[in-house]
Amino acid sequence: MQKLLVCYKWVLDEQDIKIAGDLSLDTGRAKYKISDYDKNAIEEGALLAEKHGVGVEALTFGTAAAKQSLKDALSRGLDKVYWIGDATSEQADAFVTANILAAAIKKIGQYDLILCGEGSSDSYSQQTAPRLAALLGIPAITFVQKLTVVDGKVVATRKLGDCIEEITVTGPAIVSVLPEINKPRIPGLKQVMAAAKKPSEEVKISELGLKAGELSPKVRVLSVKGYVMDRKKVIFKEANQADNVAKLVASLAQEGMC
Rank of each mutant, 00 (worst) to 15 (best):
Q2R: 11
K3M: 11
L4Y: 12
L4I: 07
L5P: 01
V6A: 04
C7R: 02
L12A: 12
L12C: 10
L12E: 08
D16G: 05
K18T: 00
I19A: 01
G21S: 13
G21P: 09
D22S: 12
L23H: 11
L25K: 08
L25G: 03
Y32V: 00
K33A: 10
K33V: 14
N40D: 02
I42D: 07
E43K: 08
G45P: 01
A49R: 01
G55M: 12
T60Y: 01
A66G: 04
A66D: 12
K67F: 08
K67V: 15
Q68V: 05
S69I: 14
L74P: 13
R76H: 15
D79M: 11
K80S: 07
V81P: 00
Y82G: 03
W83M: 08
A87V: 13
A87L: 12
T88E: 00
E90G: 07
V96S: 04
A98H: 06
N99D: 09
I100W: 05
A103L: 08
A104C: 06
I105P: 03
I108G: 04
D112L: 02
D112G: 04
C116A: 12
G117N: 02
S120W: 00
Y124T: 15
S125P: 08
Q126W: 08
Q126P: 02
Q127P: 00
P130G: 05
L132V: 00
L132C: 03
L135Q: 12
L136G: 00
G137P: 03
I141R: 04
F143T: 11
L147W: 04
T148G: 00
G152N: 01
R158L: 03
G161I: 11
G161T: 14
C163Y: 10
E166M: 09
T168F: 06
V169M: 06
T170R: 15
P172G: 08
I186N: 08
K190S: 13
V192Y: 13
A196M: 11
K197S: 11
K197Q: 12
K198G: 05
S200N: 14
V203R: 03
I205E: 04
I205L: 14
L208D: 07
L208M: 07
G209Q: 10
E214C: 02
P217H: 10
R220F: 12
V224T: 14
V224Q: 15
Y227P: 12
M229S: 14
K237A: 10
E238L: 03
E238K: 12
A242Q: 13
D243Y: 07
K247F: 04
L248Q: 01
A253G: 14
Q254C: 00
M257D: 14
C258H: 07
